[in-house]
Design a protein around this nucleic acid. Structure first.
Lengths: 223, 223
DNA sequence: ATTATCTATAGATCTATAGATAATGC
DNA sequence: ATTATCTATAGATCTATAGATAATGC
């Protein structure tokens, strides 16, 4: 099934070997965790998918939980960093009059683009985030990795909505992130529900609608 | 910890015993599944929480998967039925001119009220739904149990938005359900993020904002 | 010499079934 | 007599560790 990486045993440096093995393990674990969750995946499942022995999981990652955390952390910095940069750029461009929609475009479109351009592996990571975000332990991972970007977004939203209470702004963000996570999950539910009109994988369709939709929602809260 | 139900061994009819055991098992499983997911819970965990032997799980529910499905199905009919009734009532009341916000109030507020009034057990069910909704297998459970209500909502939204494409209406629903599931999950993330300004358990706060917010979002999609 | 990978295995746990026991039902 | 619950146990699987083997590194 997987293009038997064990076949081509070209001579590689140990550093290369290590880097390659680490990446293959993380990719395999990422996919499996995104589909079945932490407890639904065994180290044997991951090893089999890579084509190596189970004990190698322990060699590189002390135990299953740390493998999971390594999977989550690997791409968290990338998406977080990109969005942070986009928000700072928007802040600079918008000067004294940032808008809700502008901030949301920076936050949402930047992320959706990453998955659209990043291919299958990034899509797997997106699904993992979505899955994790609706669980108690998972939410703490979100805290750890994404609080800074989210608080940056919130700070711009507050400047765009100076007469809003913090409560209104945070609940608005809560709606936004729920909708985003539902998108990243790509469960296929919207496909079936809509009889094929919409597709879970169509992040472009979400991108054309989401920032505008949510901005209008924010503006409705006081008025 | 749990108020040792095994203590009071009053004389009960077998039908009563069965009903009570079934309910206790379902309640315990519901809580545990909502916290740890299908694979994160063992039948022994459930049995211990109830205070009976593991094999009783098999006596009442053939296997773990079927226990899970029974947990999910138990309350699905209630929430689905209530919302369906509320939507039909709204349809009748609104006559030829239903509004997006009216339909969303019927759909969302009815559900939120159920959890607000239903106490801890219903809150556990809500968290289970949220957890399940962002997973591939879980989404199929959602299909099975909630398609009719959702399609009813969509049909009213379409009448309220006669010039909208199906695609716009379904993506709008996708945003709504994502935000709702994020609410039901009650992970505590919004509490920590907002520094205590918002509370995951405060479904009343969500209820006062959500239908209005989402209705404005829908209206923004064309215009 | 060091590091990547595998073999062997301990110990724990989990699901599921067969059959025993102790209640309720007529 | 029937049903609810428990005891005993088989068989599978899972995590994790110790130690062997086979590569790369100087």
């Amino acid at each position: 099934m997987s293009d038997g990486s064990a076949a081509k045993r070209v001579r590689r440096s140990k550093a290369e070997q290590r880097a390659e093995s680490l990446e293959q393990i993380l990719d395999a674990a990422e996919y499996l965790f995104s589909q079945h969750g932490l407890h639904g995946v065994t180290l044997r499942d991951v090893a089999q998918r890579v084509g190596v022995h189970t004990t190698l999981m322990h060699y590189y990652f002390a135990d299953k939980r740390r493998l999971f955390e390594a999977v989550f952390a690997r791409r968290a910095g990338v998406t977080s960093g990109r969005r942070m940069a986009a928000l700072e750029q928007y802040e600079a461009d918008a000067g004294d009059h940032p808008t809700v929609e502008g901030a949301l475009h920076a936050f949402l479109d930047t992320d959706l683009d990453l998955y659209i351009q990043g291919g299958e592996l990034w899509m797997n990571y997106a699904a993992l985030c979505a899955r994790v975000s609706n669980t108690p332990e998972g939410a703490q991972l979100m805290d750890e990795h994404f609080d800074p970007v989210v608080l940056k977004l919130v700070s711009i939203l507050k400047r765009a909505l100076p007469d809003y209470s913090d409560e209104d702004v945070f609940w608005g963000y809560h709606f936004v992130t729920g909708a985003l996570m539902n998108t990243l999950a790509r469960t296929g539910r919207i496909d079936r529900l809509s009889g094929g009109v919409c597709h879970s994988d169509d992040f472009a369709a979400v991108k054309t609608r989401m920032a505008r939709f949510m901005a209008a929602g924010f503006l409705s809260l006081k008025g």
